[in-house]
Design a protein around this nucleic acid. Structure first.
Length: 771
DNA sequence: ATCGATCGATTTTTT
DNA sequence: ATCGATCGAT
């Protein structure tokens, strides 16, 4: 394994790479269209590639990398390719590898954060860190901030820690250290954010830790304060820099790139302003909009030929996004079908987009499931379909439905493996073993499982640590030498320290996976979860096992811990044929044959918060999100909106999203839901408690024309027979929510049912049908 | 030190 | 509905 940042192996490069006879053009240039090819072959100077959805962006990037190497314009370690996500980095490395083989390994290729981290480790001492600094995740960040707030006597009610944290992070995104925060910004959050920012940074340094923002922010500091030592070598070395998803870069990333690119000025940024959906996280669309001013003499190439979606989908997406003002302007053209297709030729244009009105979220999920079953019956694969939602919470109803229907699915971007409670605890053990002064880890696990080390003991340790400038571990050793603790607590603490010390020795001669299983067993963590009656506990035990397996792939504890901090995801288990369920944000960069876009309702999408906080800018970003959603689909788009939705514990009636009005009628077919007004209303059993006064979408609204739903009874739930159907034990039944089950007891209108998924339940007979 | 109950606030997106 | 924080009892 070579470390691209290892300057020790760096020999002053020949002034220019030998411009020997340029090799013949390689075969992989052949398949490119003229614009793509131009984007690959324009190697000199700043270049902006505006790449619309589905126009072969990744292909251009990877081919460009291969081209640079093939033409001997640079050696692998003289090229940096930066991505936004780990997924993109992985994919790029794979695909470049396919083109050029092993040299791909030596490219500086990774996410901003990964590259930033590796760079920073080389120069950590310049910002008062040690090169083995740890990387804090969101959870630890927040805990730390809360501690500081407590020390400063700030009321977490009046100033919510997450909001304060967000504020600090946005400063970091803009490349602002505490001193550099402009006075106009210092009043934010009643001034508390700025008041805490400095101490927060101090604390991080004491702990020899960085948060995510620091990985870039500290780089900038280092670049500026020690250019000759920590910047120029890189500037000279990096002949070419490529950036993916440039529209998502924040100011800090922009500055970082600009500094590194100053040597050779061969900066190639690829992006799409229409897909900028991360402004809330500090991303600056301005970066891409300003590119030509920032880098005078820049070339701009537009990729507009879309090879992914049908003409109808492209037309719909284009018309929708045309409602945005701040854009560089691109028009997606269909890349395949030569325009020979005559206007009325439906086949050539592809299917119309379907817009479907449903009663509520449950029905929404049900119809999607029905469509999926039909799709399967037609020989389609589930893995060709995706359900895209605006917020993570929306996945739940779909999960329930898919589970009861027996359709395999996967949730992308759900609670991630390394973020799970039990995993974080287990990893904290490893962290403490690897680094005794990892106080965050120490605090996290010192009393987990319970070993009688409570708040009182911890408080003593904190005091001592602060007074003596010690880590908690060191303070613990100190305190045991004194008699400050009660014997009982002292004994427990001593036992804990000894255990950790013991594992530390084991770690030296044992592979990480084995170490982990020993720790889990000997610490009692595993037993703790085994003994937990919580229904989720067994799953946690499984996760811990999986963790041990995952650890087998790592050489050392250190490499694993770096992986955990930066990658945060576990290799996905072999998937099989599953439908994908995820948020719109998570879907960027992916494509599917069939796409279901759920929850297109005002307040939810566009999301109310986006509108409240950012006004028009927020709306435009939501619209870009819609654009991203539409352009994920190759063949078929199905949009749904519910008339009612439960938002926290309350029912709310919803209006269809304004985005629906922005889709061209010519390419859309609007459907009412099956059985909406017929069977459904009755199934609420005269429950007028909902205060429903008719489907909101049916209320007259001048510029909307949504058909009234046809009163067809729902396919999966025939109305229950009026004279209470006679169910008897042993009978197989179907319940709308719980799926299939067997009756174990029947008494009047009430049944006991053993469901195949979800266990035993008591259910009113009218809610089930014979299966 | 630990546990349980109660109360209140909180809901976007995540490298 | 779910999560945290807080408080009082054991």
């Amino acid at each position: 394994m070579s470390d691209p940042f290892d300057l020790s192996s760096f020999q002053p490069a020949p002034p220019a790479p030998p411009p020997s006879t340029p090799p013949a053009p390689p075969p992989w240039l052949e398949g490119l269209n003229p614009e793509q090819r131009q984007a690959v072959e324009t190697t000199d100077g700043p270049l902006l590639v505006l790449s619309g959805a589905g126009t072969g962006k990744t292909r251009v990037l990877t081919t460009r990398l291969a081209y640079l190497l093939h033409q001997r314009l640079a050696r692998p370690w003289e090229i940096m390719a930066v991505t936004f996500t780990n997924r993109a980095a992985r994919e790029m490395r794979e695909r470049v590898g396919e083109l050029i083989g092993p040299p791909a390994e030596q490219l500086w290729l990774g996410t901003f954060h990964a590259l930033g981290a590796r760079l920073l480790r080389r120069h950590a001492e310049l910002v008062d860190l040690k090169s083995n600094f740890t990387i804090l995740d969101a959870d630890d960040q927040l805990r730390l901030l809360k501690q500081l707030m407590q020390a400063a006597n700030l009321d977490p009610k009046r100033s919510p820690p997450p909001a304060l944290m967000g504020c600090i992070q946005r400063w970091k995104d803009r490349g602002l250290t505490p001193e550099a925060v402009p006075t106009s910004d210092r009043g934010a959050m009643d001034g508390f954010a700025h008041r805490l920012y400095g101490p927060y940074q101090e604390r991080l340094k004491t702990l020899n830790t960085c948060d995510f923002g620091d990985l870039l922010l500290h780089c900038l500091t280092v670049f500026k304060s020690h250019p000759e030592e920590a910047l120029q070598p890189y500037q000279q070395r990096l002949r070419y820099i490529l950036v993916d998803e440039y529209q998502d870069t924040n100011v800090a990333q922009y500055l970082w790139l600009r500094l590194l690119a100053q040597g050779h000025r061969n900066l190639c940024c690829v992006g799409d302003d229409d897909q900028s959906i991360y402004s809330w996280r500090g991303a600056e669309v301005g970066n891409i909009l300003r590119f030509e001013q920032d880098f005078p003499g820049a070339n701009v190439i537009r990729l507009e030929r879309n090879y992914r979606s049908t003409p109808r989908i492209l037309a719909a997406a284009s018309e929708l996004i045309a409602n945005n003002r701040d854009r560089l302007g691109k028009t997606l053209k269909s890349g395949h079908a030569p325009q020979s297709a005559s206007q009325g030729d439906d086949d050539a244009l592809g299917e119309r987009l379907r817009v479907r009105a449903v009663w509520d979220g449950e029905e929404e999920a049900r119809v999607v499931a029905e469509d999926l079953i039909a799709h399967q019956r037609d020989g389609g694969r589930l893995s060709d379909a995706a359900i895209l939602v605006r917020t993570g919470a929306q996945t739940r109803e779909f999960e329930e439905r898919l589970m009861t229907t027996g359709l395999p699915y996967r949730v992308v971007g759900g609670p991630r493996f390394y973020e799970r409670l039990e995993i974080r605890d287990a990893v904290a053990y490893l962290r403490l073993i690897a680094q005794a002064d990892d106080d965050m880890a120490f605090e996290r696990i010192v009393n987990k499982p319970r070993r009688g080390i409570g708040d009182a003991t911890l408080k003593t340790l904190h005091q001592l640590a602060r007074a003596g400038g010690l880590s908690l571990s060191a303070a613990a050793t100190e305190v045991l030498g004194s008699d400050e603790l009660k014997p009982r607590a002292a004994k427990a603490l001593d036992g804990f320290l000894q255990q950790i010390a013991g594992w530390r020795e084991v770690a030296a001669e044992t592979p990480p996976g084995e170490l982990m299983s020993r720790v889990l067993k000997e610490s009692g963590l595993i037993d703790m979860w085994r003994a937990d009656p919580d229904p989720q506990a067994p799953g946690r035990v499984d996760n811990l096992r999986e963790l041990c397996t995952a650890l087998e792939d790592f050489e050392s504890l250190e490499t694993f811990l770096e992986h955990v901090s930066l990658v945060m995801e576990n290799e996905e288990a072999a998937l099989g044929d599953r439908v994908t369920l995820m948020t719109l944000h998570g879907a960027k960069g992916l494509e599917f044959e069939l796409v279901f876009l759920a929850g297109w309702e005002e307040e939810l999408f566009p999301h109310r918060r986006a509108l409240d906080q950012e006004g028009l800018k927020g709306l435009e970003e939501e619209r870009r999100l819609a654009y991203v959603g539409l352009t994920r689909a190759r063949r078929r788009v199905t949009i749904s909106h519910a008339a009612n939705r439960r938002l926290f514990s309350q029912w709310q009636s919803c209006l269809p999203s304004r985005f629906l009005d922005e889709l061209p009628d010519a390419h859309v077919v609007r459907e009412g839901a099956k059985g909406l007004s017929g069977g459904r209303a009755g199934s609420f059993g005269g429950g007028s408690g909902l205060g429903w006064d008719g489907p909101s979408w049916a209320r007259p609204k001048p510029d909307r024309h949504i058909e009234r739903p046809t009163p067809t009874p729902p396919a999966t739930r025939p109305a229950a027979p009026d004279g209470e159907a006679a169910f008897s034990p042993g009978q197989r039944v179907f319940h709308d929510k719980f799926g299939y089950g067997t009756v174990t007891r029947a008494e009047g209108g009430k049944l006991d049912i053993q469901f195949e998924k979800g266990g035993a339940k008591k259910v009113m007979a009218r809610f089930v049908v014979a299966a």
